[in-house]
């Protein structure tokens, strides 16, 4: 109460006076805010071209208005359903298996008694997080390459010969999910592990005295304490479900192996890039901006909704 009063009197005191310290503080903000304005807000204004027939020489403002025809074209094109399906389904797999595996790792790690061993395991598990998708793409290529790859060598032992993985779209649901989990499981499990470390140890001791074994203890004591965290992290991930990891879907698939894999790996982000890069005819700038704008708006609504839900569960966990 007193603190609140203090703040109020302070506020009043400074209300009409711009002190030199205020001026210094504002001057600090100028460069960072300007950077954000140029590289974040100007492009937002540039989304106007989603409603225009953009011509490079006419500029953003000079190009002709075309209403919603860019959106219309996209909705009518056969790629629309494919993109939404692939983006949502792949992300769904990542969320499901990513969460399960990192949860499992965290729970197992929690049972490791030696601090030294915990550290070693964690360090190794986190290492892939530091690699770029390009490096990961090379590893995937070394495994899947049809002529020399490791996987086909193993399969040939069982009499299965020369499968060209880069032209088998269905297999990529599995390949991409495995790749995603491999790269992120270490880092993702850190959050759960940190939460487990915060469990009141008397709870665990009590369950031990009651004669609960490790499995029972995990199910009845450890897991319930994690449920709020799991639901919130999942909800927040769902908020980003329309945004695909461009690096994973572009490099690891070798640019969708030039079209052979689009059926399952063409996502909104890769579509925007390819259309922008490869199409020189027509209104590709306007079209891709329209798709990007759509993704951004739907994404924003989802993030706000999911965050609002997260706040209901635990006010401390929401992002805002």
């Amino acid at each position: 109460m007193r603190a609140k009063l203090n703040v109020q009197t302070k506020k009043r005191k400074y209300k009409h006076k711009l002190t030199s310290s205020d001026i210094q503080l504002y001057s600090m903000c100028i460069l960072p805010l300007l950077t954000v304005f140029i590289f974040k807000y100007l492009p937002m204004g540039g989304t106007l071209i989603a409603f225009k027939d953009y011509k490079f020489n006419l500029g953003i403002l000079g190009s002709q208005w075309v209403g919603l025809s860019n959106f219309e074209y996209f909705f009518k094109s056969n790629v629309f359903v494919q993109l939404v399906r692939n983006t949502l389904f792949n992300n769904f797999l990542f969320i499901l298996f990513g969460t399960l595996s990192s949860l499992l790792v965290a729970i197992l790690l929690f049972e490791v008694k030696s601090r030294m061993a915990t550290k070693i395991y964690q360090t190794i598990l986190i290492t892939p997080f530091f690699m770029s998708w390009v490096i990961v793409a090379y590893m995937v290529y070394a495994i899947l390459n049809s002529n020399y790859g490791y996987l086909n060598q193993i399969l040939s032992l069982f009499g299965i010969q020369g499968i060209d993985w880069y032209s088998k779209p269905k297999a990529w649901y599995v390949i991409l999910t495995l790749t995603y989990v491999w790269k992120n499981v270490g880092m993702d499990s850190v959050v759960y592990y940190a939460a487990l470390m915060g469990i009141d140890s008397s709870l665990i001791e009590a369950s031990e005295i009651d004669g609960a074994n490790k499995v029972k203890r995990t199910i009845h004591v450890v897991l319930p304490t994690l449920i709020p965290l799991i639901s919130i992290l999942t909800i927040l991930k769902i908020g980003n479900i329309f945004r695909a990891d461009f690096g994973l879907f572009y490099t690891v698939t070798q640019d969708g192996a030039s079209g052979n894999l689009y059926e399952t790996t063409n996502v909104i982000d890769t579509y925007i890039f390819r259309t922008f890069r490869e199409t020189t005819t027509g209104n590709s700038y306007g079209l891709t901006t329209a798709v990007g704008l759509l993704q951004s708006v739907v994404g924003m609504v989802l993030v706000i909704l999911t965050n609002w839900t997260a706040k209901k569960i635990d006010p401390d966990m929401a992002l805002f």
Binding site: P43, M44, G45, G46, I272, G292
Partner: peptide
Amino acid sequence: LFNGGLVPTYIVV
């Protein structure tokens, strides 16, 4: 929450 996306950013930059 919101960003201009690839193409508008490209045009600005």
